[in-house]
Nucleic acid binder design. Sequence first.
DNA 1: AGTGCAGTTGACTTT
DNA 2: TAAAGTCAACTGCAC
Length: 501
Amino acid sequence: MLQVVWLKRDLRLHDHRPLVEACLRSPGNVMVVYIAEPTIWQAGDLSVRHLQFVAQSLAEMAEGLHDSGIPLYTAIAEMEPTLAAILEHCGTFRLLAHEEHGTPLTFARDLRVHRWMRSRGLEFVEYPPFGVTRRLPSREQFQMSWEQKMSEPLLSAPALSQALREWPVELRPLRRALDFSELHGVPGIPLSSGQKGGERLARATFADFLRDRCTRYQSHISKPYDSMHSCARISTYLAWGNLSMREVVQRSRQALQSIAPSRRRHLEAFLSRLHWHCHFIQRIEDDAEIAVRTMNSAFEGLRGENEEIFQRWLEGQTGFPLIDAAMRALAQTGWLHFRGRAMVVSFICNTLMQDWRRPAQALAQLFLDYEPGIHFSQVQMQAGTTGFNTIRIYNPLKQSQEHDSEGRFIRLFVPELRELPSAQLHEPWKYVDLAMLGYPVPMVDLTEANRIARERLWSVRGRAKVAPETKRLLNKHGSRSGKQKNRRQSSAPEQIEFDFG
DNA sequence: AGTGCAGTTGACTTT
DNA sequence: TAAAGTCAACTGCAC
């Protein structure tokens, strides 16, 4: 029977369980499909830069698949008509895919596909894509099931096989083209200078990290400029599945054995983040609603939604050089180091007291490595809406002076300030006429705004912390690693924190 | 040498 | 890897 491998965020040939299982079951009778569903691409979290990355990844996959005698079809269509077309043109088939740990929208779509297949007596098999478990009985079991999934042997790319049938160019709406320009209404504009998709680049980037850059990982992780080179830079490849998490974990552990003991802490820190990666995605798997609903309702309705404030933040025109550099870096490259992400969320949601949802959608569109599970957890955590994390209100001046003291990052992305001496770069309004430079004066009194934010958020948190809702959330989403720092004897379990930045 | 004092550092607490 | 505040211990200096 025809085996149809449905690609989602798993755009690779290596260590691809659905592909391997399909080839084992029915060699020579396998087709691979990528279906760009308008309802999902137009929902507001995905953007043109993601579509571009997907297309680049698919182009490389198509070559590899072609060499194995497997066709890659794409469609710009919803799932049901596409499946119906396959059934009509090719007869009964078996559908194989990785589970998708996504938003309520993709979660509901997967349920629809299950229903559609079941009602026609067709089999739909799903495999876990990395360390996350569907219907995890309790958080206590996360660690064990993660370890078990990460230890499984890696699977190789499909071997050459003889096709059993002639594959037509078109099985409308499926076609052999890799061009998605007909998919309209996807927000954003193409990215010209960010990372490019594909398994080859993914592997090269990761290999280079393990060979050389990993020895600077931890020292540079908070530095906006140095982190661009010293971070692993595989987040985008993991998000779109150009690399398998299992392979990254296994190769990092191997590399750890052959590295000088004095350098090990860097790779150990990296490995611990790979674990956190899955920990956060497990949250959205357990409760997809965290993408749209404020986790702790005590924080609902606390903040405003002001169009002008939002736009100035989004466009990098706040008048705070590090914030503006960060937002412009994101727009230009699709990437920002962890601390910078926390800072821009804190600035819009805390300093500027804006609701987290619109910024979350805007950032999802900008982060080329947008991964729903990590994204919405992190935004809610930095906006302080979980009730069980501490309130973190960043001071962009302090961050700027401590982590970009020489201003290399600011000068790179805020050219208006490029000529200023480093000592004036962090608070330029104190020294020069900004109108002459075409750079805005600060849009708020930072000290005062942060003072008000602290007051309001801590007072709500004081009430939220004791609420039963917080205990329920902590039980559902909290870490069980027991490695948290600063756990004072007197502190209640609600104060466990999820620092992984 | 010992004292007083301003300023710094670090641990800890609060918001 | 939040920031600000508090407090005690410490440091360097003047006398």
